[in-house]
Protein backbone atom coordinates (compact mmCIF):
# COMPACT_ATOMS: atom_id res chain seq x y z
CA UNK A 1 0.00 0.00 0.00
CA UNK A 2 1.34 3.45 -0.81
CA UNK A 3 1.62 6.05 1.92
CA UNK A 4 -0.97 8.21 0.20
CA UNK A 5 -3.54 5.47 0.92
CA UNK A 6 -3.06 6.02 4.65
CA UNK A 7 -4.81 8.90 6.34
CA UNK A 8 -4.37 9.93 9.94
CA UNK A 9 -7.34 11.76 11.39
CA UNK A 10 -6.50 13.75 14.47
CA UNK A 11 -8.05 12.69 17.74
CA UNK A 12 -11.49 14.05 18.48
CA UNK A 13 -11.45 16.18 21.66
CA UNK A 14 -15.25 16.62 21.81
CA UNK A 15 -15.65 14.25 24.74
CA UNK A 16 -12.94 16.02 26.72
CA UNK A 17 -14.68 19.33 26.06
CA UNK A 18 -18.01 17.88 27.15
CA UNK A 19 -17.02 16.21 30.43
CA UNK A 20 -13.57 17.63 31.20
CA UNK A 21 -10.54 15.57 32.13
CA UNK A 22 -9.57 13.71 35.27
CA UNK A 23 -10.65 10.66 37.19
CA UNK A 24 -13.87 9.08 38.32
CA UNK A 25 -14.27 9.69 42.06
CA UNK A 26 -13.01 6.77 44.16
CA UNK A 27 -16.24 6.78 46.20
CA UNK A 28 -18.22 6.20 43.00
CA UNK A 29 -15.95 3.31 41.98
CA UNK A 30 -16.29 1.80 45.45
CA UNK A 31 -20.09 2.08 45.33
CA UNK A 32 -20.10 0.33 41.96
CA UNK A 33 -17.87 -2.44 43.23
CA UNK A 34 -20.12 -2.95 46.25
CA UNK A 35 -23.07 -3.19 43.91
CA UNK A 36 -21.28 -5.89 41.86
CA UNK A 37 -20.33 -7.87 44.96
CA UNK A 38 -23.77 -7.69 46.50
CA UNK A 39 -25.93 -8.34 43.45
CA UNK A 40 -28.44 -11.09 44.10
CA UNK A 41 -28.76 -12.61 40.65
CA UNK A 42 -29.19 -16.37 40.81
CA UNK A 43 -26.36 -17.81 38.72
CA UNK A 44 -27.75 -21.36 38.64
CA UNK A 45 -30.18 -21.01 35.69
CA UNK A 46 -27.52 -19.17 33.69
CA UNK A 47 -24.93 -21.80 34.56
CA UNK A 48 -27.32 -24.60 33.57
CA UNK A 49 -27.73 -22.98 30.15
CA UNK A 50 -23.96 -22.68 29.65
CA UNK A 51 -23.31 -26.22 30.93
CA UNK A 52 -25.98 -27.62 28.59
CA UNK A 53 -24.32 -25.79 25.71
CA UNK A 54 -20.97 -27.25 26.79
CA UNK A 55 -22.45 -30.77 26.91
CA UNK A 56 -23.75 -30.20 23.37
CA UNK A 57 -20.31 -28.93 22.33
CA UNK A 58 -18.63 -32.04 23.75
CA UNK A 59 -21.09 -34.29 21.90
CA UNK A 60 -20.64 -32.30 18.72
CA UNK A 61 -16.85 -32.65 18.89
CA UNK A 62 -17.10 -36.36 19.66
CA UNK A 63 -19.15 -36.84 16.50
CA UNK A 64 -16.64 -35.18 14.19
CA UNK A 65 -13.17 -35.84 12.80
CA UNK A 66 -10.40 -33.99 10.97
CA UNK A 67 -11.13 -30.47 9.77
CA UNK A 68 -14.71 -30.75 10.93
CA UNK A 69 -13.49 -31.35 14.47
CA UNK A 70 -11.13 -28.36 14.28
CA UNK A 71 -14.15 -26.22 13.38
CA UNK A 72 -16.20 -27.86 16.14
CA UNK A 73 -13.74 -26.68 18.82
CA UNK A 74 -15.58 -23.35 19.08
CA UNK A 75 -18.72 -25.16 20.22
CA UNK A 76 -16.82 -25.97 23.43
CA UNK A 77 -14.88 -22.70 23.64
CA UNK A 78 -17.96 -20.42 23.65
CA UNK A 79 -19.79 -21.97 26.66
CA UNK A 80 -16.52 -22.22 28.61
CA UNK A 81 -15.91 -18.54 27.92
CA UNK A 82 -19.48 -17.72 29.03
CA UNK A 83 -18.94 -19.61 32.29
CA UNK A 84 -15.63 -17.85 32.87
CA UNK A 85 -17.10 -14.42 32.07
CA UNK A 86 -20.25 -14.63 34.16
CA UNK A 87 -19.66 -16.90 37.16
CA UNK A 88 -17.57 -14.54 39.28
CA UNK A 89 -19.85 -11.61 38.49
CA UNK A 90 -22.70 -13.58 40.05
CA UNK A 91 -20.97 -15.08 43.07
CA UNK A 92 -19.06 -18.11 41.79
CA UNK A 93 -15.34 -17.18 41.57
CA UNK A 94 -14.27 -20.83 41.67
CA UNK A 95 -16.23 -21.54 38.47
CA UNK A 96 -14.59 -18.54 36.79
CA UNK A 97 -11.14 -19.65 37.92
CA UNK A 98 -11.59 -23.19 36.61
CA UNK A 99 -13.27 -22.08 33.37
CA UNK A 100 -10.46 -19.60 32.79
CA UNK A 101 -7.88 -22.40 32.96
CA UNK A 102 -10.04 -24.44 30.57
CA UNK A 103 -10.50 -21.48 28.22
CA UNK A 104 -6.75 -20.87 27.98
CA UNK A 105 -6.29 -24.59 27.40
CA UNK A 106 -8.85 -24.69 24.57
CA UNK A 107 -7.49 -21.49 23.02
CA UNK A 108 -4.05 -23.18 22.89
CA UNK A 109 -5.32 -26.31 21.16
CA UNK A 110 -5.78 -26.36 17.40
CA UNK A 111 -7.79 -29.57 17.01
CA UNK A 112 -9.39 -31.19 20.03
CA UNK A 113 -8.32 -34.84 20.12
CA UNK A 114 -10.06 -37.39 22.34
CA UNK A 115 -7.82 -36.47 25.32
CA UNK A 116 -8.89 -32.82 25.06
CA UNK A 117 -12.55 -33.77 24.86
CA UNK A 118 -12.16 -36.05 27.90
CA UNK A 119 -10.52 -33.23 29.91
CA UNK A 120 -13.31 -30.82 28.92
CA UNK A 121 -16.00 -33.31 29.82
CA UNK A 122 -14.42 -34.01 33.22
CA UNK A 123 -14.21 -30.24 33.74
CA UNK A 124 -17.90 -29.88 32.82
CA UNK A 125 -18.88 -32.51 35.38
CA UNK A 126 -16.78 -30.78 38.05
CA UNK A 127 -18.50 -27.47 37.31
CA UNK A 128 -21.92 -29.13 37.49
CA UNK A 129 -21.07 -30.45 40.94
CA UNK A 130 -19.82 -27.06 42.10
CA UNK A 131 -23.04 -25.40 41.00
CA UNK A 132 -25.18 -28.19 42.45
CA UNK A 133 -23.31 -27.95 45.78
CA UNK A 134 -23.67 -24.14 45.68
CA UNK A 135 -19.93 -23.62 46.18
CA UNK A 136 -20.26 -19.85 45.82
CA UNK A 137 -18.23 -17.18 47.59
CA UNK A 138 -14.49 -17.14 48.23
CA UNK A 139 -12.43 -20.02 46.86
CA UNK A 140 -11.69 -22.36 49.76
CA UNK A 141 -9.22 -25.16 50.22
CA UNK A 142 -11.36 -27.65 48.27
CA UNK A 143 -11.52 -25.17 45.43
CA UNK A 144 -7.74 -24.76 45.44
CA UNK A 145 -7.37 -28.53 45.10
CA UNK A 146 -9.69 -28.54 42.06
CA UNK A 147 -7.76 -25.66 40.48
CA UNK A 148 -4.48 -27.46 41.05
CA UNK A 149 -5.80 -30.71 39.57
CA UNK A 150 -7.11 -29.00 36.45
CA UNK A 151 -3.85 -27.08 35.97
CA UNK A 152 -1.92 -30.34 36.25
CA UNK A 153 -4.21 -32.12 33.75
CA UNK A 154 -3.67 -29.30 31.23
CA UNK A 155 0.08 -29.22 31.89
CA UNK A 156 0.32 -32.98 31.30
CA UNK A 157 -1.43 -32.51 27.97
CA UNK A 158 0.83 -29.60 26.94
CA UNK A 159 3.90 -31.71 27.80
CA UNK A 160 2.59 -34.80 26.01
CA UNK A 161 1.80 -32.88 22.81
CA UNK A 162 4.74 -30.49 23.13
CA UNK A 163 2.58 -27.38 22.82
CA UNK A 164 2.70 -24.10 24.70
CA UNK A 165 -0.13 -22.23 26.34
CA UNK A 166 -1.03 -19.15 24.32
CA UNK A 167 -0.29 -15.78 25.97
CA UNK A 168 -3.16 -13.92 27.58
CA UNK A 169 -3.90 -10.30 28.40
Amino acid sequence: MSQSDVKIIKANKNLKEKVGTGDIAATRVEASQNMIENNEVDFEPMAAEFLDALADGVKHCQGTAGDERTAALQSMVKPVMDLKANAQMFGYPLVTELANIMLNFLESVETPDNDVIAIVDAHRKTLMLIIKSKMSGPIGQKGMVLIDELKKACARYYAKKDIEEKPTQ
Binding site: V6, I8, A11, T21, D23, I24, V29, S32, Q33, M35
Partner: peptide, 27 residues
Protein backbone atom coordinates in the same frame (compact mmCIF):
# COMPACT_ATOMS: atom_id res chain seq x y z
CA UNK B 1 -12.35 -8.59 30.08
CA UNK B 2 -15.14 -10.31 32.04
CA UNK B 3 -15.26 -10.86 34.93
CA UNK B 4 -14.46 -7.22 35.62
CA UNK B 5 -14.24 -4.95 38.64
CA UNK B 6 -15.80 -1.51 38.81
CA UNK B 7 -12.32 -0.02 38.64
CA UNK B 8 -11.72 -1.76 35.27
CA UNK B 9 -14.84 -0.12 33.83
CA UNK B 10 -13.88 3.24 35.32
CA UNK B 11 -10.36 3.04 33.86
CA UNK B 12 -11.64 2.30 30.35
CA UNK B 13 -14.05 5.25 30.51
CA UNK B 14 -11.37 7.56 31.91
CA UNK B 15 -9.00 6.42 29.18
CA UNK B 16 -11.30 7.10 26.23
CA UNK B 17 -12.04 10.56 27.64
CA UNK B 18 -8.55 11.59 28.79
CA UNK B 19 -6.56 10.01 25.96
CA UNK B 20 -8.54 10.22 22.71
CA UNK B 21 -6.65 8.51 19.90
CA UNK B 22 -5.99 9.50 16.32
CA UNK B 23 -7.93 7.53 13.74
CA UNK B 24 -6.23 5.68 10.92
CA UNK B 25 -7.89 5.12 7.58
CA UNK B 26 -6.42 2.63 5.11
CA UNK B 27 -7.87 0.44 2.38
Amino acid sequence: IKPFKATDVAKRIEHVINHPRDFVSTA
